[in-house]
């Protein structure tokens, strides 16, 4: 019972870890390059959650000094993650661009087929 309670108390971490592991699994297990990139994005998204969750306080507001509010959410993680999202988007865009070029060069985006084509050189 206590285990279930602890599980539910930390459900946000469970979600984060699930996304993290799922994303990493896709990157490793899939040979299709676009799927790999999707996995990579999921993996990165889990990190966004990891940062943002602890920064949010239930009932807290944006940190604008006002006598009406005393509980604020931490703004720093939000700012950090904005940056991280930009990085993530850039990575994804570059990755997809590379996949397009690879498709032009090899005619496929399946890793095993590409390795086969390079095998003769």
């Amino acid at each position: 019972m206590q285990a279930v309670q602890g599980f539910l108390d930390h459900y946000n971490y469970v979600v984060t870890i699930f996304l993290m592991v799922a994303g990493l699994y896709i990157v490793i297990a899939r040979g299709n390059m676009v799927k790999k990139l999707i996995g990579l994005s999921i993996f990165q998204t889990s990190v966004y959650l990891l940062y943002i969750e602890p920064g949010k306080i239930l009932g807290g507001t944006a940190p604008i000094i006002d006598p009406a509010f005393t509980v604020y959410s931490n703004p720093l993680p939000h700012v950090l993650i904005l940056t991280a999202i930009v990085v993530g988007v850039a990575t994804l865009a570059l990755g997809l661009a590379l996949v397009v070029r690879i498709h032009e060069a090899y005619g496929t985006i399946e890793e095993d087929e590409i390795f086969e084509k390079d095998g003769d050189t």
Binding site: M20, L24, V27, M33, K36, L40, F43, Q44, V47, L50, A84, T91, L94, G95, L98, V99, R101, I102, A105, Y106, I114, D118, T121
Partner: peptide, 24 residues
Amino acid sequence: DRRALLSAFQYLIMGTIGATFYVI
């Protein structure tokens, strides 16, 4: 060389995983 594209992609995957680990 067309293998440069493939190496870049592989590095992108590994590098991003590394950087994400770092940020975790």
